[in-house]
């Protein structure tokens, strides 16, 4: 599913590498927490898996694609096969909930028939039925993240990348979102989640990969923060 080997990433103008000789294997159906302080390299690693960046050294394989050698015109097709959520939700403020999800299907050329069926279904799945016509500004933070999750999984991706999805949410809302992500994982989607939230990591007892100064210092199954 994911195979990262001996990856280093050096940004221009920075004295020390953001990632230093990192190797990581993730199997299908896994749930992996990426933990570590700010600047430890979590986001750099996520960016490599999304092919927003290429490593300075080493190789990155995700969903069977070699992300170092992939031609840039194939990148969009690779990204259609995974879902992404962020701390800041990244919803379009002038589109309703349903339109936000439909937009991501329209731009990859799905038919209107498919969209009309898939959008209500995924909204029901994330517990937002009845709010299809709201604007993001009329929703709570937790609800906005549900919309973002709905958009990420509407295409039934094999992999979900979550970059601090609970970073802007209060603890009880975070729990609801985590329950949803766990359900997505149980349905067979591999989940990689970068987080600072000690409570969530300790409670879920999943595989934990800890980064420090661009190096993996711990990779523990059933670990805690």
């Amino acid at each position: 599913m994911i195979s990262i080997s001996n990856v280093s990433k050096q940004y221009k103008g920075s004295p020390r590498p953001a990632l230093n000789n990192v190797s990581l294997e993730v199997e299908k159906g896994d749930f992996v927490f990426l933990v570590g302080a700010s600047g430890s390299g979590k986001s750099s690693l996520m960016r490599l898996m999304l092919r927003e960046d290429v490593p300075t050294k080493g190789s990155v394989h995700v969903l069977g694609e070699n992300l170092v050698g992939i031609p840039s015109r194939r990148v969009p097709f690779f990204r259609r096969r995974l879902g992404v959520v962020f701390q800041d939700f990244r919803l379009l403020p002038n589109k309703t909930v349903a339109q936000n999800i439909a937009f991501s299907l329209e731009v990859i050329g799905k038919s209107q028939g498919f969209i009309q069926e898939a959008v209500p279904e995924v909204l029901r799945l994330v517990g937002l039925d009845g709010k299809a016509d709201r604007l993001p500004s009329e929703l709570s933070g937790g609800e906005q993240q549900r919309v973002a999750l709905a958009r990420a999984i509407v295409n039934k991706p094999a992999l979900l990348l979550a970059d601090e999805p609970t970073g802007n949410l209060d603890p009880s809302t975070s729990q609801d979102i985590m329950a949803l992500i766990e359900r997505i994982n149980l349905a067979g989607t591999t989940v990689i989640m970068a987080t600072h939230d000690r409570g969530i990591v300790d409670r879920l007892k999943k595989r934990v990969v800890e980064l420090k100064d661009g190096e993996i210092i711990r990779d523990q199954v059933g670990g805690s923060y």
């Binding site: 097709f77 990204r79 731009v107």
Partner: peptide, 14 residues
């Protein structure tokens, strides 16, 4: 919109 389009895998042509 452009950022989101790239994120969800809209092709460059699109």
């Amino acid at each position: 919109e452009l950022g989101i389009m790239r994120l969800v895998g809209a092709s460059n042509f699109y």
